[in-house]
Design a protein around this nucleic acid. Structure first.
Lengths: 149, 149
DNA sequence: TACTAATTAGGAATCATTCCTATTATGAAC
DNA sequence: GTTCATAATAGGAATGATTCCTAATTAGTA
C-alpha cells in the first residue's frame, strides 16, 4: 500500500484480502476496517472501540484486539508501539517515517525516501535489520497555529 | 556525551553533574550510575535492580525508578520506550540510531550521521520536531554467529 | 435448514510503571 | 563530632493497556 491510496481503495483491498484468506466478514470487522482506512491519524484500540461501539453497541475490547491482531498477522496492518500512550495502528505497512504530535497525539506519515538501507547497516556493523522505526516527536502544523508558536 | 567516551569518563561526568546540582550521592545512586556507565547494551529498570541488589541488598524498585527519573530530568539519561519490553536507559543523550536485537534484547548504537535535520522536516511539512527516534530491529552479529544464520 | 468452526463478549489476569507514605540517612551548619 | 532539615529510600498499593480464558454466538457452507 503506497502513501497516496484513497480510503476507499484501502478499505477494498483489506476486505478483498480477508475474503480471499477465508476470514469471516463480520459487522465488527467491517466497521474496524472502515475506520482504519479512513482515519489517517493512526487511531489506537480504545479510540477504535469507542467509535465502533456507536454502530455495533455490544462490541468488546477483546474483539477489537483480536481483529487488530489478525490484520497484523496477515501483514495488512502495522502496529506502532509506545509505552506512554496506547498503541496505534497504521494501514500503511511499508516502512516510512512517522511524525507524532505531542499536543494532539495525531500521527502523520512523512513521504519520501528512507535514509539508510538495511544492506548498508549490515555491511557497516554486522547487524542484520529486519524492521525499522523512524519517528519525529514534536508539534504539528495545526497545533502550532492554534498556540501561535 | 559523544559515542566514544569511556565508561570511566561517563561515570565521572554523571557524578560531577549531580554533585554540582546539589543531589545527594547515595550508595544506591552511585551503583546505578556505575552500571549505566559501563553497560553499553542499554539495560532496563528490572535488570538494573537485580544487579544493584547484589551490592545494595535492600534497594527497592522505587529507588531505581526515582533515580532514573532524576537523571532523565537533568538531561543525563535518555529513556528508550517500548511497550512489549521494559524501557531501556542510555547515557548517550545525543540523537543517534539504535540497533535492537530481537534474540538477546541488547541495544547497540549506530555511529554516524543522522539522515534528516529537524529543519528539513519543518520546511517540508510544517511539523516542528523536538525529538527523534531511529531504530532498526533485527539480529546482532553475535546472535547471528551462534545460530549460523 | 442445520451444522461447525471461527468469532465474539465479558471478565479475570498480567506486569511494568506510577503513586503514596512512613522511615532513613546525606550533607550542611554549628 | 553532633544535630538537624529535608531529600531520598523502602515497601506496597494502584494503575491501565494488553493478554488470556471460556462460554455463547454467528457467518458461511453444504
Amino acid at each position: 500500500m503506497n502513501l497516496s491510496a484513497t480510503p476507499e481503495e484501502i478499505e477494498r483491498k483489506l476486505i478483498k484480502s480477508l475474503r480471499e484468506k477465508g476470514y469471516k466478514l463480520t459487522s465488527q470487522r467491517l466497521e474496524i476496517i472502515g475506520l482504519l482506512a479512513r482515519d489517517m491519524t493512526h487511531p489506537g484500540a480504545t479510540d477504535l472501540f469507542r467509535r465502533v461501539r456507536k454502530r455495533v453497541p455490544r462490541i468488546s475490547m477483546s474483539t477489537v484486539y483480536y481483529t487488530l491482531d489478525m490484520l497484523k498477522k496477515e501483514g495488512l496492518l502495522r502496529e506502532l508501539e509506545f509505552y506512554d500512550r496506547d498503541n496505534r495502528y497504521d494501514v500503511t505497512v511499508a516502512d516510512h517515517i512517522n511524525l507524532i504530535c505531542r499536543k494532539c497525539g495525531k500521527i502523520a506519515d512523512l513521504p519520501g525516501e528512507l535514509p539508510f538501507s538495511t544492506e548498508a547497516v549490515l555491511k557497516k556493523t554486522g547487524f542484520q535489520p529486519v524492521a525499522m522505526r523512524y519517528e519525529y516527536y514534536g508539534y504539528c502544523k495545526e497545533c502550532r497555529r492554534k498556540r501561535a508558536r
